[in-house]
Structure formats: C-alpha cells, structure tokens
C-alpha cells in the first residue's frame, strides 16, 4: 500500500524558503504519515524537519521536487503542493513581516482533522 509520488514545485516567495515558510512546510509535512522528502539541486532532505529544509537555501524561483512515500502520499503532496502554490500564504512577505490572516484556508483532504496547527498567529499589524 506504500506508494511514492513526486511533484515539482517552485519557490515563488520572493524571500525564498526562509524560516517561516520552512516552518509551515515542515508542519504540514508532519501532519501526514508518509515519509516526505524534498529534493533540491544538490541534496535530498527530510520535509518534516525545519533544519533540513533550511539547508536547501532555496531562493525565489528555485525548483524543488517533493517526494512522498506512504499510505497518504498523494494527499500529502496535494496539501504541500498547494502550500507552495499559494506562496506559503505569506502574502507579500514584506519587510515588516505583516501577515495576512489566511493561514491555510485551502481545502484539506478529508482524512485529517481540519484544525490546522493554529499556532500561527496571523495579523501582527
């Protein structure tokens, strides 16, 4: 029942995959049973580890391949893929770090508790 699926994503965020997006990706990845790996130009890292993700130093425009292996691999990649597509929901990612409130309002697969890690306090305005 274990399957490996992969998907290419692009880091659209102009600041690159810095600490906050890396945290968001690792949090999302940890919600899934599957092993999640992120493959960059020179290395393959654990998608559930913020430290690992930061070692990618993925700048804006970087292509990465997400790979998931496990029972919920497809769903995991859908969720992670949309996180990248939605630019980590860090609207603008401006120098002041003002965030929008829409921390993950995408549709999530039904097999997970809908409550996101609500630890992200939005709106530091």
């Amino acid at each position: 029942m274990s399957q490996t699926v992969s998907r290419e994503v692009i880091v659209a965020n102009e600041q690159g995959l810095h600490a906050r997006p890396a945290d968001l990706v690792a949090r999302e990845a940890r919600r899934w049973q599957s092993r999640i790996e992120v493959v960059g130009k020179a290395q393959r890292v654990d998608g559930k580890s913020i430290l690992d993700l930061l070692t990618l130093a993925a700048e804006a425009g970087t292509r990465l391949v997400l790979e998931a292996t496990g029972p919920d691999a497809s769903e995991a990649l859908d969720a992670l893929g949309s996180l990248f597509e939605q630019n980590f929901t860090l609207a603008g990612d401006s120098t002041t770090h003002t965030e929008n409130e829409t921390v993950v309002k995408r549709t999530t697969p039904a097999n997970e508790v809908p409550g996101e890690p609500a630890g992200e306090r939005g709106g530091g305005r």
Binding site: H18, L51, E59
Partner: peptide, 14 residues
Amino acid sequence: RPGDHLRALENISR
C-alpha cells in the same frame, strides 16, 4: 538581501 539571509540560515542549520 534575502539571499544572504537564506545562506546564513543554511549554514547555521547545516
């Protein structure tokens, strides 16, 4: 200079 910040984080985390 977002790239410098990223590369510093990279080094620290590595």
